[in-house]
Design a protein around this nucleic acid. Sequence first.
DNA 1: TTCACTTTTTGACCTAGGTCAAAAAATCCC
DNA 2: GGGATTTTTTGACCTAGGTCAAAAAGTGAA
Lengths: 189, 189
Amino acid sequence: MSNKIFNGLGLPQEELIVFKESLSARQLKKGEYFITEGQASVHLALIESGYLRTFHLDNKGDEITTEFNGPGTFCSSYHSFYSQLPSYESIEAVTDCNLFLISFPALQKHYAHSLQLNVMGRKVLEKACMDRDYFLKRVIHLPAKDKYEWFLKVYPEVYKSARLRDIASFLGIKPETLSRIRRKLSLNQ
Amino acid sequence: MSNKIFNGLGLPQEELIVFKESLSARQLKKGEYFITEGQASVHLALIESGYLRTFHLDNKGDEITTEFNGPGTFCSSYHSFYSQLPSYESIEAVTDCNLFLISFPALQKHYAHSLQLNVMGRKVLEKACMDRDYFLKRVIHLPAKDKYEWFLKVYPEVYKSARLRDIASFLGIKPETLSRIRRKLSLNQ
DNA sequence: TTCACTTTTTGACCTAGGTCAAAAAATCCC
DNA sequence: GGGATTTTTTGACCTAGGTCAAAAAGTGAA
């Protein structure tokens, strides 16, 4: 079983073995849901392969994509997972995925006993926090074309498999606008 | 010394006493800087009273305010504090402030020994992460007027002391636009 | 392969919010 | 308290990106 993912966690060998025992493997086909709006999210996923998309409906009923997550990262509806309240968002497989799942109670049990696992949790959150910070501070207010170019750099894999309209809503622009940007970029060479 | 702030941290009494020994008090007058762009941020602040504003300069040289922090919360340039690299943002007192500071090495020492402190650190980050998530997912793309009304609800205190232009850049709109929104809202009754 | 359905593209038009400049109001500080 | 400085307000105008509708291109199940 893919050790690359696990070594990236920074857990000492002994702790890692114990942690792994709480994981269960899960496969998702493209289009299947990992989390459905309205249900509390019981599991946190560690992505081994594939990409997931987080989205919710706005007040007009349109889907707004808010996250793409790939290999080596944790994925869940943060709000729902930490509060154990119903999720206001859904998470769908953009491609076929292999996940490792850990349940909320199992994770809490580890947190209560293991300092190292808390350190890991803290670091994962620090990164998540800094990523959101960066997006909020440096990306969200750029003109549409610049946002798309940023996306191509940061999510080169997602670009290949996600729908144009999901990429558009992720960047806060309309599909028509993104389509026009793509045409303009392809004309430029 | 203000116990309300400390009891909110969820540390058991013994740990709290040890933690407090690493803190030093600091006062800031309105307008004074806590963190200056370009310098590594050595301290994390726990705010006892007052409000702080985090901002950076965009490529046109305009200030972009990205955070307001108030009593009971931790404040620092996250990126700089966790990486110990020079900060790309500054933090300024919006009102007179009373802070408790802890240095990076002191915090790391506590983290290495105390499970409870790790739990606290993780929970603070979970909240910070969820707040950013919410802002990014549910607020940033609202029309200007709705964003301002959200701000009034969530930051009623900041509204009283912060400059209009800082609130505007925080919401990603121009001061002229916010001024017009305020007029419209005041006409509506 | 074809038919039904979904997604993307294109065109014509519109509007929220940006820009620029100048007046008015608020704040600072000697 | 008064003159300098900063911030906010207002008006006239502009533009990036949104809206609506219809055609074209993809996708997929039978």
